[in-house]
Simulated scan of single mutants.
Amino acid sequence: MGITDRKEREKLEMRRLIMDAAMDMFVKDGYEKTSIRNIADKIEYSPATIYLYYKDKDELLWGLQTEAFEKLANVFREGITAIEPIQQLRQMAKLYVEFGMGNPDLYDLMFIIRSPMNAEKNEEWKSGSSAFQFLMNIIQAAIDKLKYENVMIGALSCWSMVHGLVSLNVRGRCKVLEVPEDKVQDMLQIAVDQYIDNITR
């Protein structure tokens, strides 16, 4: 391995070390209470080292968010296997619920806290676009069977419904329903299935 290759590998390893430490601290201590200095202390480097990779805490969190959305997009790529668009929509909704339920802290960082959006300078939400495009493609393919006027309204409506359910659970709001914790995912999936049944009648 040459010097250039070794330096590139070391940069990637350092970036991974910073991101893993930041993720751990954002989840355990909260975004507002975590500082670049705290992260530097955790990995035993100076804050100046972190600033070589990220200009501020928002950009670091946005990097984590971008990575998380790629993970979600990969879940869709691998898990959506049906040929018929309505069945694809059902599979996607199920995968989305499973992802949110299985990764509540990551989901919170992706969707619920506002700070990552501060690092995005234009109006387009680039980090979420690849995952949302899967939904747009499915709605486009199934638009003749759905009760929507256009693809964007259909995609936004479907996403809002599933996202709302997962967000309620991530923030502990499903507890008011007094549903046993091991039954919450089943309940959310039933709600999603009934929603898809309603929009395809």
Rank of each mutant, 00 (worst) to 15 (best):
G154H: 05
C174T: 15
A40W: 03
V192M: 04
K57Q: 05
E13A: 04
M19T: 01
I138E: 02
K147G: 11
Y96S: 02
C174G: 11
P47G: 05
I80F: 03
D56A: 03
E32R: 14
A119Q: 02
L168Q: 14
S167A: 15
L135Y: 00
I153A: 13
Y195H: 09
Q91Y: 05
L177A: 12
W159T: 09
P116S: 00
Y54A: 00
K11T: 08
S115P: 13
L168S: 13
S35T: 15
D58H: 15
D197W: 04
D58E: 15
K183S: 13
M110I: 02
V97W: 01
E59D: 12
L168F: 07
L12M: 11
Q194E: 15
N150F: 10
Q140L: 10
K71P: 02
M92S: 02
L106R: 10
V192K: 00
L89R: 01
L165V: 01
Y148C: 07
L61A: 01
Y54H: 03
K183R: 15
R16W: 04
K7M: 11
L89F: 00
D197N: 13
H163R: 08
M92T: 03
A68R: 06
Y53V: 00
A131V: 05
V27P: 04
L95W: 10
G172D: 07
S129T: 12
K94G: 10
K33N: 15
L52N: 14
Y107A: 11
D56L: 04
R173S: 09
Y31W: 02
M152H: 12
K145S: 10
T200R: 03
A141S: 13
K33P: 03
D29F: 08
L95G: 08
L156I: 13
N38Q: 11
K145Y: 10
E178C: 13
K147M: 11
A131E: 07
S167L: 06
L188S: 01
M23D: 12
P116R: 01
A68E: 08
Q133S: 12
A22N: 04
